[in-house]
Design a protein around this nucleic acid. Structure first.
Lengths: 215, 215
DNA sequence: ACTCATGTTGACCAAACGGTCAACTTAAGT
DNA sequence: ACTTAAGTTGACCGTTTGGTCAACATGAGT
């Protein structure tokens, strides 16, 4: 255990660790923190409950780990643009990414929603610092675009809220949407339909033109 | 107890009944069905737990009662319009109602969201029948307006989803919105700001003109 | 004043909860 | 083959859970 330390510190550890994390993500997403039991997570992971506690000291630690993984993945996946970029392109790309994320990994948004609904006890600090900072930066870029007359002037923060809400809706309210549309699950064609209408309405709403309508 | 039967069957019963229902609404909204304990509801209501069971046979019955009251109130408050009405007026009024509802009674939307996130076990039937029927009717009206050239053609169902998501966002994600805006609570001026931007973006997005921009 | 329906509640129960631990099996370095 | 670290797990503990019940208090009709 000297040379191989970097190669595969512990193959089995990482395997089970991720297995538990994935199971926990699903269970927590369905019933929130308080509503989820370690037993349910253990069963979903196919392991005895005591084994979960070998990898995670307690329920809260597991929950925080799941939450953090989601936030990291979200921050990697999207959201970097500058005032030099084209407003339409940026918004189109951002909305498309969010829709894909919502449809393909609805658990993540559901868990996040659950956390926020219950008062965000675990991530209030994150929202108050990192997230607010991110929103400020992007809002400033929106504002510059509006000042330049590139888009219609609307409150930048609330514009971002509109993008978040319309896209995440397809994750959080997945059950309702599918029941209303009489579908079993989202299909690839749905991603496009959703992206298209959300993009079209919002972009047109702020005086922009979707790329497929240009020229 | 013959003549007074209609007057006030039991004043004390109704008082406690509503007290418990309100307490349950808050608690269920925060932590969902599984995450809420009868004890927490009892404490919120200021009654011993056993007293709750005098009015509601069990947890599920109480939960269903709370849910049903919400659905009834929602169906009363809004959503009735016909193809003869003016599209802009209808959408404006509908959005304004939903925003007011979200800001003033966020518990209700939060509880509904919780239920849907956890797979809508208690209201899947309601969604599949009544709600879907309602959506079909309103979508048909949207479609007629679009066919008449009164508004831009977009998928009517998804347009409704956009209205629902943008407005309910301010209830479900209330904590996040307030933390990001650095506010303690929604103020009357917020209702107007939110209504204004949501209405403006969506109406413009579907080729309509908000009333305050006309002429 | 008496009566009976209505409402109240502490004490209690079985089940499920989060979490611990010692005994055990498996994997890996020498 | 031996040793030690890593991983597994059934049994168990104290607490909380939803729910019951018998004893009690209070209301209203006569």
């Amino acid at each position: 255990m000297k040379a191989s330390e970097n190669n595969r510190k512990s193959h089995i550890r990482e395997k089970n660790y991720l297995n538990i994390l994935n199971a926990a993500e699903e269970v927590f997403a369905q019933n929130g923190f308080k509503g989820s039991s370690m037993n349910a997570i253990a069963e979903k992971a196919g392991l005895p409950k005591a084994n979960i506690h070998y990898y995670f000291s307690n329920k809260m630690a597991l929950y925080m780990e799941v939450l953090q993984r989601i936030l990291v993945e979200w921050n990697q996946g999207l959201g970097e643009f500058t005032e030099q970029d084209d407003p339409s392109e940026v918004l189109e790309h951002y909305i498309a990414s969010k829709v894909l994320q919502a449809c393909q990994k609805p658990h993540q948004s559901k868990l996040f929603a659950s956390e926020v609904i219950s008062g965000a006890p675990a991530i209030a600090d994150y929202i108050r610092t990192e997230m607010r900072q991110w929103l400020r930066e992007k809002s400033a870029i929106f504002q510059i675009w509006m000042d330049k007359g590139l888009m219609k002037p609307v409150d930048p923060s609330h514009l971002m809220f509109m993008i978040w809400s319309t896209t995440q809706h397809y994750a959080d309210y997945q059950t309702q949407v599918l029941l209303l549309l009489n579908q079993q699950e989202y299909e690839t064609s749905d991603y496009e339909t959703i992206t298209r209408i959300v993009t079209e309405v919002i972009l047109t709403g702020v005086g922009l033109t979707p790329s497929w309508k240009k020229q």
